[in-house]
């Protein structure tokens, strides 16, 4: 089986997102030949399935790590997600991307472990969320490229920290929607919550992350 990189460039460039997100470049997650690998794997080509695993293992580990916040749980959730996707591959109909299907399985595995470890911190309930506390305060300029004030590894640590500190209900929506690139509808389906709840939590997550990054990015702040 011929392999391609994650950008899928060998077969003519990245695929586009199911939901347009003009604030960033189109998704490069699912390579254009993904369906060929899936078809080969379904026909019994284990190397093809291993290629899919190689392609997505880092992204899936980041997903499970971000949701669970615990390395042991993240590894277990990732491993079970890949094993389940292999076991149930014949039932995958191909009406969504394999990557999307895999993300949903991995998110479920991670959420199951999160709920078990922290039963009171994560719920699918949809409380009425007021708007009064959403207005940011003390807004200050960040300058044009605030992230460039930090070395790459330092920046990665900051990003991990701000995501980890996000409230689990908001974090999970943000990870699925913005990082794993599921659509709003797919995120709602994966979490068993409504589309308006996804939108509301996503807004809160984004605002909260902005607020958390603010202390690192304020112009003139010492690094």
């Amino acid at each position: 089986m011929t392999s391609t990189d994650e950008k899928g460039t060998r077969f003519g460039g990245p695929t586009t997102l199911s939901t347009p997100n003009p604030h960033r470049v189109p998704s490069s997650v699912a390579g254009a030949d993904e369906h060929l690998l899936v078809a080969a794997a379904k026909a019994g080509d284990t190397a093809a399935f291993e290629e899919l695993v190689n392609r997505y293992e880092r992204k899936i580990f980041r997903l499970t790590m971000n949701i669970t916040g615990n390395r042991e749980d993240a590894e277990d959730a990732m491993q079970d997600a890949f094993l389940k996707s292999y076991t149930h591959l014949q039932s995958f109909q191909g009406d969504s991307r394999f990557y999307t299907w895999l993300v949903r399985i991995a998110a479920n595995e991670a959420l199951m472990r999160l709920r078990k470890r922290r039963p009171n911190q994560f719920s699918l309930d949809e409380p009425i969320e007021g708007e009064d506390d959403m207005m940011p305060r003390e807004i200050e300029d960040w300058g044009p490229s605030p992230e460039q004030r930090y070395a790459q590894t330092e920046m990665q640590e900051i990003l991990n920290e701000v995501i980890e500190k996000l409230e689990p209900n908001f974090r999970t929506v943000f990870i699925l929607r913005d990082v794993a690139e599921l659509s709003t509808e797919e995120t709602a389906q994966a979490l068993g919550i409504s589309v308006p709840a996804v939108k509301s939590r996503l807004l809160r997550a984004r605002l909260s992350l902005r607020q958390k990054l603010d202390r690192y990015f304020r112009k003139g702040e010492l690094n």
Partner: peptide
């Protein structure tokens, strides 16, 4: 500033490559 900073936040977090 809020709009620009929130856009930037999403961009930075979405575009960061997962570590090995």
């Amino acid at each position: 500033m809020i709009v620009d900073q929130t856009k930037k936040t999403v961009e930075i977090l979405c575009d960061s490559e997962p570590v090995a």
